[in-house]
Amino acid sequence: MVAFLTKTEGNDDFADIVDFLNASSIRYSLTVNPTVYVSNIKQFWSTAKTKTANNETQIYAKVAGKSVVVTESSVRSDLQFNDEDGATCLTNVEIFENLALMGYERDSDKLSFEKALFSPHWKYLIHTILHCLSSKSTAWNEFSTNVASAVICLAKGQKFNLNN
Rank of each mutant, 00 (worst) to 15 (best):
V2W: 05
F4H: 14
F4L: 14
L5C: 05
T8Q: 06
E9F: 12
G10C: 05
A15G: 10
I17N: 03
I17C: 12
D19P: 00
F20L: 10
S25Y: 14
I26M: 06
I26Q: 10
I26C: 15
R27E: 15
V32N: 08
N33Q: 09
T35D: 02
T35I: 07
V36I: 14
S39M: 05
S39P: 01
I41A: 06
K42A: 10
F44C: 03
K51Q: 13
T52E: 13
T52M: 13
T57A: 13
Q58A: 08
Q58H: 08
Y60M: 02
A61M: 10
A61K: 10
A61P: 10
K62Y: 04
A64P: 00
A64V: 08
A64T: 06
G65L: 03
K66C: 07
S67H: 03
S67D: 03
V68D: 01
V69P: 02
T71E: 01
E72C: 10
S73R: 14
S73T: 14
S74R: 10
S74C: 05
V75L: 03
D78T: 09
L79Q: 05
F81V: 13
F81S: 07
D83V: 01
T91E: 04
E94A: 15
E94K: 15
F96K: 09
Y104C: 02
R106D: 06
D107C: 13
S108D: 12
S108L: 05
D109T: 13
K110P: 02
S112R: 08
S112P: 00
F113W: 06
A116I: 11
F118W: 03
F118V: 02
S119D: 14
K123M: 09
K123N: 04
Y124A: 02
I126C: 04
H127C: 13
T128H: 04
L133E: 13
L133C: 12
S134N: 14
T138V: 13
A139V: 09
W140G: 07
W140F: 10
E142L: 13
F143R: 01
S144L: 01
S144Y: 00
N146S: 11
V151N: 06
V151R: 05
C153F: 09
C153P: 05
L154W: 09
A155C: 14
A155R: 15
K156C: 06
K159H: 07
K159E: 02
N161P: 00
N163P: 09
N163V: 15
N163S: 15
N164C: 07
